[in-house]
Computed example of a mutant assay.
Amino acid sequence: MTTALITGASAGIGEAFARELAARQTDLVLVARSQNKLQELASFLKNRYQVEVDIIVQDLTEPNAGETVFQTVQQLGRSIDLLINNAGLGDYGDFAESDRNVQIKMVQLNIAAVVDLTHRFLAGMRDRRTGGVINLSSVAAFQSMPYFSIYAATKAFILSFSEALWAENRSYGVHVLAVCPGPAGIQFFQQAGFPASLVDVVARVNTPVETVVQDALKAFEKREAIVIPGSPINPILATLPRFLPREAVARFWGLVLGARSIP
């Protein structure tokens, strides 16, 4: 039986991955900050699907978090066949007026933790000549987004990073996939501090997290490098910026997200 490690597993897309993989008889290692939510989810999945589920309570923005997770997995005697880097943080607002510590934490969680965990677990997969990594990017990766600048930039990194690893690891039997959903659930946007008016817009174009997971796993099975799941509007949002001046794209999103023009 294979084992998957999922970060940000206590809610949203991460929880949906856990539920779907458990239903497919995949053992799990679930990582998140919320011990109560992880324990509740683990107990449910064990009883429902008769799979092994371990939890690791860890804030991935903390120093040496990747080392802690890796060593805990070793102590559990687990071999990770599928790494799902799902944990992420967003923050809405004017960058110059934002909380600097939040922006740095976003880079730590969205980029550094992904690089760290991927490097640690990828080596074993290559040695075994099997395994895979699924990295959660976003349609935001395909364009700069004023008032959501750091988030979009971190997801652009994840997309480029994942595509490169897809090419590097094919000959080792290890598959790497970048998943680039559009809005999937409104809780993320509420926590990121989006105005209520924008959250309402997000709710109207929302893709169920279960759809994101199902589309991602289908693409993974097909050995695709990238998938843009959900609504047909998401591939349009990802592709259209390629045919427009970058300044025009930035101005457009500045108007949409900032509700004012950009000087």
Rank of each mutant, 00 (worst) to 15 (best):
L240E: 03
Y92K: 09
A113N: 10
A248G: 00
T239F: 14
D116A: 12
V73A: 09
F189I: 06
V227A: 02
I80E: 04
N47S: 14
T26V: 12
I6H: 07
Y49Q: 12
I233M: 12
F161A: 07
S197H: 09
A259E: 15
V107M: 15
V212M: 07
G185N: 09
E20H: 11
G8I: 05
G173A: 04
F142N: 04
S10V: 09
L41I: 05
V114G: 03
A123T: 08
S162C: 00
A32V: 05
R128P: 01
R246T: 13
G173I: 14
R251I: 00
S34R: 14
E97V: 00
A203F: 08
M145W: 13
L45V: 04
D81Y: 08
T26L: 04
G124T: 11
M125R: 09
G182V: 05
R24G: 07
D200Q: 13
I186S: 07
A178G: 13
G90T: 02
L122R: 05
A87K: 08
L45K: 12
F157G: 11
A32P: 12
L82G: 10
A152F: 01
T239I: 12
Q50L: 09
G132L: 02
G77F: 13
F95H: 00
E15Q: 13
Q74R: 15
G93A: 04
F243K: 08
A153E: 08
N135R: 14
L41W: 14
R251F: 01
D59W: 01
Q58K: 01
N169W: 03
A112Y: 09
A96V: 09
N101I: 00
V176T: 11
A164K: 12
S138M: 03
A23L: 05
N36H: 13
G230I: 03
Q103H: 15
A87D: 11
F157I: 03
M1S: 07
P195A: 12
E52V: 10
